[in-house]
C-alpha cells in the first residue's frame, strides 16, 4: 500500500525491478516467437497471430516503464522475507503434487501440505499436527467423496476406508 518513494535512501537502482522488466521483455519475445508458428488460415478479418503481437508490444512498453521505475529506485520499499517459511510451503505443494501424481491418494497428499504449512507458520509439534492432518483429511475425504460423490484421488489409505 506504500506506493510513494521512500525518501532518498531508496533512490538506488532496484535489482529486483530490473529482473521484473527483463522477465516482461522475455515474455514479449516468447509471445512473438510463438505467434510466428501459427498458420495464417484466416480468410476474412483478423487472424490468431495479431493479438499476441499486440499484447507483446504492450508488454515491451511495460518492460521499459518498469525498467525506468527500477533505475530511478521508484519501487515501494520491501521488508525482508522469511525464506524458510516460503520454501516450506512450496515444499508442501511439491509433495502434494508428487503424492497425487504417484497415486498416494488424497489423504496422505493433503496431510503433507497441512503439516508443512503449519510448520511454516511456526508450529514445531510435527507429530501432533500430522495426527490432526490425517483425521481432518480423512473426514473431508469421507464427507466429499463418499457422501457428496465427488471423486477424489484414491491411494492405499482410501482403499482401507
Amino acid at each position: 500500500m506504500t506506493d510513494l518513494p521512500q525518501g532518498p535512501a531508496s533512490r538506488r537502482v532496484d535489482r529486483a525491478g530490473v529482473v521484473i522488466a527483463a522477465v516482461l521483455a522475455a515474455l514479449a519475445v516468447v509471445l512473438v516467437w510463438d505467434s510466428r508458428q501459427l498458420a495464417t488460415t484466416t480468410m476474412y478479418g483478423m487472424g490468431p497471430e495479431v493479438m499476441p503481437v499486440v499484447i507483446a508490444i504492450g508488454l515491451g512498453l511495460l518492460a521499459i516503464g518498469n525498467l525506468v521505475d527500477a533505475l530511478r529506485g521508484n519501487l515501494p520499499a520491501r521488508e525482508s522475507a522469511d525464506r524458510k517459511a516460503v520454501w516450506l510451503i512450496l515444499g508442501g505443494l511439491v509433495l502434494l503434487i508428487a503424492i497425487i501424481g504417484l497415486g498416494g491418494g488424497f489423504i496422505i497428499a493433503t496431510s503433507a501440505l497441512f503439516v508443512t504449512t503449519s510448520a511454516a507458520f511456526g508450529r514445531r509439534a510435527l507429530l501432533a499436527d500430522a495426527a490432526i492432518a490425517l483425521v481432518l483429511s480423512t473426514l473431508i475425504y469421507l464427507a466429499f467423496d463418499r457422501l457428496l460423490t465427488l471423486s477424489l484421488p484414491t491411494g492405499p489409505l482410501e482403499r482401507l476406508l
Binding site: I89, G92, L93, L96, I100, F106, A109, T110, L113, F114, V115, T117, S118, A119, A120, F121, G122, R123, D129, I132, A133, L136, S137, I140, F144, L150, S151, L152, P153
Partner: peptide, 21 residues
C-alpha cells in the same frame, strides 16, 4: 494461525484436486 492457513491451503487445493486431478 498455523492451522487456519494449513486448512485454507488444503481446502484451496482440494477444489482443483476434485475438478481436475
Amino acid at each position: 494461525q498455523p492451522w487456519l492457513y494449513a486448512g485454507i491451503l488444503v481446502f484451496a487445493t482440494m477444489g482443483t484436486i476434485a475438478a481436475k486431478p
